[in-house]
Design a protein around this nucleic acid. Structure first.
Length: 281
DNA sequence: ATTGGGACCTGCTCGC
DNA sequence: TGCGAGCAGGTCCCAA
């Protein structure tokens, strides 16, 4: 669900509310079927114990991950998966369905993690407990990182035989792009999603770099995309509005705004790709 | 070594 | 109206 623009919107929503606040307790809601959410977080009791009385220092984002920095050098890392939400609530607010964890904060605030499909994950990094070895954030650079240039991208694509869409979805190449924005970026760049990555030219790589930044920036300003099943919501449970600006995603069978041809959709690299057969070559 | 496909969950929509 | 199949924005793991 949430890609970079959605995660960034959530970050901007929760940061001012929770920064500087003390965590009074972390309430992990038991799930008889097992909680994928806590798969890598040791046991729920240890998780609760380590979060109690920590103070939230800042909220960062890396790719699609949220990093909640706590005092004593601990980092709470949250990935929203497909359907995860982080909601700023009051104790008196009605319960949210599928809530997995409630972080009770001082000043009568709650940060609730709700996730119907349970694809979200929560990690707690505690150097004090020797948990520094694995870093799930060993991702590719952020799309806005100046390190990303057309020459840089071209060199990464040159020796790869996968479709360009699969490459853009690779978080270890560039962090933060998901299925919606990869379709939009390739349409704006006039490149078919099934093109072999090694066939991309310098000029095309330049278009990818520029449109990636432009589209992600625009999507952030529109507070993300709430398309299709409308799963995505921000920290106040509000939808985004970038779905009103989509050129190809979720528009199969409709006319391309540029050439009026019918938008096609087919599976590429295990994901549904949407593209204009006329505009994209 | 890469790459492709299935698995992981639940809820919703569509077609019969 | 009811029900099962198919599908959903992500990532991991395994086999080729």
């Amino acid at each position: 669900m949430p890609e970079l623009p959605e995660v960034e919107t959530v970050r901007r929503g929760i940061e001012p509310a929770i920064r500087g606040k003390r965590i009074l307790s972390a309430e992990v809601i038991p799930d008889p079927k097992g909680i994928r959410t806590l798969r890598r977080v040791r046991s729920a009791p240890a998780f609760r114990k380590n979060l109690t009385n920590r103070i939230i220092e800042k909220v960062d984002r890396r790719g699609k991950y949220l990093l909640i920095y706590l005092n004593h050098d601990e980092i709470l890392i949250i990935h929203l998966g497909m359907s995860g939400r982080l909601l700023i609530r009051r104790p008196s607010d009605p319960p949210d369905p599928h809530t997995r964890i409630i972080f009770h904060l001082e000043k009568k605030l709650e940060l609730r993690f709700a996730d119907p499909r349970k694809f979200g994950e929560v990690y707690l990094f505690s150097p004090a407990l020797g948990e520094t070895a694995v870093n799930p954030l060993d991702l590719g650079p952020e799309p806005f990182d100046p390190e990303i240039t057309s020459a840089w991208l071209l060199s990464r694509l040159a020796k790869s035989s996968r479709p360009i869409k699969a490459a853009l979805l690779d978080q270890y190449l560039i962090a933060g792009i998901g299925n919606i924005y990869s379709d939009e970026i390739l349409h704006a760049s006039r490149i078919r999603p099934d093109r072999n990555a090694s066939s991309i030219t310098r000029e095309e790589a330049d278009r990818i770099v520029r449109h990636t930044r432009r589209i992600l920036k625009l999507a952030i300003s529109k507070r993300g995309t709430t398309a299709g099943d409308g799963v995505y919501r921000d920290s106040r449970n509000q939808p985004g509005s970038f779905q009103n600006h989509l050129q190809v995603y979720a528009r199969e069978g409709e006319g391309c705004y540029h050439c009026r041809s019918k938008i096609a959709s087919r599976t590429i690299g295990g994901r549904t790709a949407h593209f204009c057969p006329e505009c994209q070559k």
